[in-house]
Simulated assay, not measured.
Amino acid sequence: MSKYLGLHETLEVHELLTFKNLCLTKSSTMSVLAQDEELKTILSNDVTAGQQHIKQLLQFLTNREVQQ
């Protein structure tokens, strides 16, 4: 596998990162405003998952090692 993403792949990863950051911001903001405990739990789980997804997407942009 090559060391670098193609231009279109890089742009798609940036688009996904933008979307995931928006989702993370919305979930974390709404979890503070939510009054229902079950909804707070769902939003909290979404925040945790969103953070993990963002870390994984960032690895595509920062990991330049050759993968086999």
Rank of each mutant, 00 (worst) to 15 (best):
K20H: 10
Q68W: 11
N63L: 14
K3L: 09
Q68E: 14
T48V: 14
L33Q: 11
Y4W: 09
L11S: 02
L24A: 12
D36G: 00
L5R: 06
N63T: 15
T29V: 11
L61K: 03
S28D: 11
V13C: 13
T10V: 11
E12H: 06
V32K: 15
H8V: 15
M30K: 07
H14V: 10
E38V: 03
S2I: 10
S28F: 09
F19C: 08
E37G: 03
F60C: 00
R64I: 12
D46K: 12
N63Y: 15
L24M: 14
E38G: 01
N45Y: 01
E38L: 10
V13K: 13
T29W: 08
F60K: 00
M30L: 05
E65D: 09
Q35S: 15
Q56D: 15
R64Y: 05
L16A: 02
T10Q: 07
Q67C: 04
F19S: 06
T10H: 11
G6W: 13
S2A: 14
T18E: 02
Q35Y: 12
E9L: 03
K55P: 01
D46V: 08
I42H: 08
V32N: 09
Q56A: 15
L39W: 00
G6Q: 15
Q67M: 12
G50S: 05
V13L: 13
L43G: 07
K20N: 09
S44I: 04
E15Y: 02
S27L: 02
K55H: 05
T18K: 06
T62W: 05
E38N: 03
V32R: 14
E65Q: 09
Q52T: 08
Q35N: 14
L39N: 01
S44Q: 14
L33H: 02
C23G: 06
T25S: 11
T48R: 11
T29Q: 14
A34T: 01
E37I: 07
E37V: 02
L39S: 01
L5Y: 05
E65C: 01
S27C: 08
L33K: 10
L11F: 02
